[in-house]
Write a protein that binds this DNA or RNA. Sequence first.
DNA 1: GACCAATATCGAAGCGCTTACATCATTTGC
DNA 2: GCAAATGATGTAAGCGCTTCGATATTGGTC
Lengths: 338, 338
Amino acid sequence: MAQKPPTIYQIAELAGVSIGTVSRVMNGKDRVAPATRARVLAVAEKYDFRPNAAARGLATNRTHALMMLVSDLANVYFAEMAKRISRHARDAGLRTVLADSDETPEREAEYLRALADGHVDGAVIAPLTTDANIPLYQALIRRRFPLVLMDTELEGVDASCVRTDNERGAALAVDYLAEKGHARIGFVCGNIAFQTNRLRFQGFREALQRRGLPLANEHLVFNQDFLEAEGFCGVDSMLAPPNRPTAIFASTDLTAMGCVRTIRRAGLRVPDDIAVVGFDDLRISAHMEVPLTTIGQPKDEIAATAVELLAEQLDPDASPRGRKLVRITPVLVRRASA
Amino acid sequence: MAQKPPTIYQIAELAGVSIGTVSRVMNGKDRVAPATRARVLAVAEKYDFRPNAAARGLATNRTHALMMLVSDLANVYFAEMAKRISRHARDAGLRTVLADSDETPEREAEYLRALADGHVDGAVIAPLTTDANIPLYQALIRRRFPLVLMDTELEGVDASCVRTDNERGAALAVDYLAEKGHARIGFVCGNIAFQTNRLRFQGFREALQRRGLPLANEHLVFNQDFLEAEGFCGVDSMLAPPNRPTAIFASTDLTAMGCVRTIRRAGLRVPDDIAVVGFDDLRISAHMEVPLTTIGQPKDEIAATAVELLAEQLDPDASPRGRKLVRITPVLVRRASA
DNA sequence: GACCAATATCGAAGCGCTTACATCATTTGC
DNA sequence: GCAAATGATGTAAGCGCTTCGATATTGGTC
């Protein structure tokens, strides 16, 4: 076990002041005579004094930490987001406590409940797309627990939310493809359990309609299980010659990679025979054998906004909480696959 | 801001007992009359009572949290490890606080120093391979702060450590390749700044010697910058016909993917013209266009061991701390690339 | 030089828990 | 039946900090 670090009492004693004064210099809010401040600081430095987090938390009811709850940390997208959230949180003076629900509502519930024990001040959550935990979310909101939803909104949960404008992103993809002359565009959907993917499909369909482009059922694939995350994408079904699409929009880069792989294995070329557009712009997407053309989520903007929205709610003297929905506009990233 | 949750006093009052009793039933260690326990539990349940973490921490000097410090959370390998660590930690009753040093010693130092403020009980750290922060590590050890190093050992830091047996892994790769008849085996090293990669190189060279296989300088590439992480791997240089290697061992799957890509772009086939073996066995490695043959790190075993080693140190009545080095034996995963 | 407003500092209460010890009520053993 | 042991619960002292009201000090002012 660790050895006892110095407490505020010892520092006060050593600096010849009261603990109140030490506290004030450590927090730098109140005025303290420059000489005193210097003396205290010197002692604190010398003994490597760090105010105990628990004691501070108990006294102020603030932990300076947030929980980041995602459904699968090993998913590249979430990993990238977690990194960014934790960086922005740090810049805002907050630590990041990690929580991975492993795509199970039970575990998500567990973490949601744990929020009440006060080990964090608030949470940034990429919720599972399921109704199971809606009541828990609502309870948190009712208690005015600081909360920001990321990526997916929750029906009946009046929380702030940041997400990419998925519908718009899908439209971007369709427009790009259409302008390149593609008339038969297929859609391969990542795990349909995610709201994100559903919205992308919706945006896709609408964009098609807007342009008067047809959508054949056999040009539509919906994935369900987690395997999709690795790019088993079921695109094979639409590769048969007669009515094959000339382009495919995949609702996720991971899915898109699966498509490219399958298409090439079938002896077809990307983008010559079939063009592929993904969504997300993961770090690795630029480095595939066929660098992926994709709809890029401005990840850093999303992360920054999420932390900002949370910080707002954390601010004790802020205006009354208003639900905010921030839609971030995605961007077309042209590379080789389309 | 959040609304006040109930305290132990209110629960005690409502259940008609003293706070001591409530505390005892919440912690379940001491004996309490079954009837009383039931009553308290009922009240606690009804009011959704959760003992305040800060107060608990202050009283017990335990936070039930660990810090997981890595150099880049968006690196797939670390993301996978973080997920696993956090799962095992959770199973051991610990939360995981995330820290990403972004590969800078300064930030690493910052987090190392933060450990002293007691917001976590211990740390699992994948250290940067640099001498810069050795003194900080030593200071932590001196204070007997619970610490487990992951993946890389630190000269002069007497801490427990779990890592894959990198030398052995490299030997595995060489042996496999040699037995397949390859005599000219090249080596492409991931970021040489990492100890991990250096050890893999060392193991590679030794295995070659042991088998009496030659190692030409032009069959050796060392990467330095972070780009390597995405698979820019500099393998092009050894693709010229006359003395081209027939197989390549890449010290990282990410690097191996870069190799495969480059090789195929050059119009050569993997594994027919050049076989490629990677190291790590990432989740995506199985799903590349050419599924990667690789040396698999038993990630879950590493994570479990790390948490275990830490838990040992956390246990107040454990035997005196002894430094432990646990080497996990990697495993050859045969797929298509070699 | 007395008085007042600032300014700097002290002192103590309190944050919500755990836990050692005290207390009280039962049993048990003889 | 009574002392002692045993078990259940209450009590209160911290844990290390923040913060608010009280106190001490300083420097102008007239």
